[in-house]
Amino acid sequence: MDFFVGNNTFDRGMHVRRSVLGDAHVDKANSKINDFNADFQSFITNYAWGEIWTRPGLSKHNKSLITLAMLIALNRPAEFKMHVKAAFNNGVSADEIKEVIMQSALYCGLPAANDAFHLALEVFSPLTPDGGI
């Protein structure tokens, strides 16, 4: 179980971060650590991934769905695309992502949902044989 891997919050966070986002993404982010952003990267690993994503109250699958909805509402396209890909790692299907976007159309607005559909299709294309359709 991911919740007890490693000896400290950072180790647990790095484990979950890698399992959700993939080694390539995390390695790329880590390769860009410098004196200016090192504290922020540590913060992300410790708190976002080591404290919140390791909480046992929701599955990673559900956390992915919730995260997608919030990123649509906040209009964060780069993070949304990253988390669409991560959602696949957490067992979320293209149909479930479609339903999150449909729900967001009602509560976040049609332009937000329209953008989310376009962004999701950009991510689906290389990941699924049928482009997620």
Rank of each mutant, 00 (worst) to 15 (best):
T67N: 14
E122Y: 10
S125H: 07
S31E: 13
A86S: 02
N7H: 11
L121R: 10
K63S: 00
P129D: 07
D130G: 06
R18I: 12
D39V: 05
S104A: 15
Q41G: 04
C108A: 15
K81P: 00
N62G: 04
L74S: 02
I133D: 06
G13M: 13
P77T: 14
T54Q: 08
I97C: 06
A38P: 03
M82R: 00
S42A: 12
Y47R: 09
A73D: 04
D130K: 09
A48Y: 05
E51A: 15
I66W: 03
E99N: 11
A105P: 01
R17Q: 14
M70F: 00
D130W: 01
G13Y: 13
F10N: 12
Q41T: 04
H15A: 05
S93K: 11
H118T: 13
V5K: 05
W49V: 06
F124V: 01
V123M: 01
F117G: 05
T67L: 13
D39R: 07
H118S: 15
I72T: 00
P111C: 12
G132N: 04
A87H: 00
I97R: 03
N37K: 03
A29S: 14
L65H: 02
E122P: 00
S59C: 11
F43C: 06
P126G: 02
S42H: 14
